[in-house]
Design a protein around this nucleic acid. Structure first.
Lengths: 186, 186
DNA sequence: TATTTTTATGCAACTTTTTGCATATTAGAG
DNA sequence: CTCTAATATGCAAAAAGTTGCATAAAAATA
């Protein structure tokens, strides 16, 4: 849907190779948009066919050859059209919550372990985001203004992760207090 | 992936028609698992073929006929196997954040309006969840214990929505203070 | 020196999700 | 009396996303 547009947003900032884009999806953008490398390459192919982007092959002697993609005029028009239109609220599909909802079918220990594992992941994501925030906050006023909007998305990450961890603590405490098994709903 | 399992979790609690399941996905489960009606019917077909569920046709005189699905022994085994395995962290694909990230391409007013619209949606979702929480809290101790795990997923919704709204306020305040246009990153 | 990681791209097959269409009845609102 | 909403299910096609495989060279680690 808007993986196309996410790619265009990145290319509008800076011409990049597919590999660069994948790295971006793993880092900055990755908190709110996920894409695997195959998907990025597939979409770049389609975007090229639609003439929203073009590329130039760069042969490198020390590393494998790469294709540097850049956004075209047509791509810019499409992006600017997209960005002015209302976006849909995003769909949430969270398996962990499905598992918890049906948690009476799993050993209590298993649930606790699962929560612990996810807590570690969220904890380290949060630390990462906070590290990036510190970098942002140390910039001069001009640069801070420059990166304000990406910073706002970073804030979403930080606030979201803190909320997640707060919730997980609540659940772990509740489950620990509630030792007897809970029967399933009928 | 686990739409199949989400359906099984619901059917394990109570035999239901496809239509009932869709309603469930719009209400209780809907906060953390979304599925359109076509998808539910498609998956029910596949689940039937895999013999994880069976159904009985019920002809109704006043309303259209319906098929009541229930989980089979095989389905229960599969579900219990799935629920003991670790789940992946869920992927987040949030177009609103992509739009904000590339927000220098949109009129500032447009961004503010978009944030307002989403705020209204999240606000009413939160109110809804809080209403359900009140119902839960008014139950007797036995029933509260009974519905503890689904309640934990409700808490995720409440904490998550509050965090979203908190973030949106922060962004709206920041954007209002920051009146001059922000140039794109390079 | 051997192994692993990083850089760099892609095809093919499959599964999942979305979009658009289609049908049919009853209840309620205007 | 007409239109809309709710009940109830589904097909077909397209788009999006996942999984598995494949190649190839340099750089870093053991």
């Amino acid at each position: 849907m808007s993986l196309k547009h996410a790619i265009l947003v990145l290319l509008e900032t800076e011409p990049s190779s597919g590999y660069d884009l994948v790295k971006h999806f793993k880092r900055s953008l990755g908190y709110f948009w996920n894409a695997k490398h195959q998907q990025v390459y597939q979409q770049l192919k389609k975007l090229t066919e639609a003439q929203w982007v073009t590329f130039q092959a760069h042969s490198q002697s020390d590393k494998p050859d790469k294709k540097i993609y850049e956004i075209t005029q047509r791509g810019k028009e499409e992006l600017s059209k997209w960005i002015k239109q209302p976006v849909k609220t995003n769909r949430i599909n969270d398996s962990l919550l499905v598992k918890l909802y049906g948690g009476h079918l799993a050993p209590r220990k298993n649930l606790m372990q699962e929560l612990e594992n996810h807590t570690e992941i969220h904890q380290s994501t949060l630390e990462n985001l906070e590290r990036i925030e510190q970098l942002y906050l140390s910039l001069n006023e001009e640069k801070k203004a420059h990166y304000l909007l990406p910073y706002m998305t970073l804030r979403r990450g930080i606030i979201g992760e803190r909320a997640w961890l707060e919730w997980a603590e609540e659940v772990k405490n509740t489950l620990q207090r509630q030792s007897p098994d809970i029967k399933k709903a009928d």
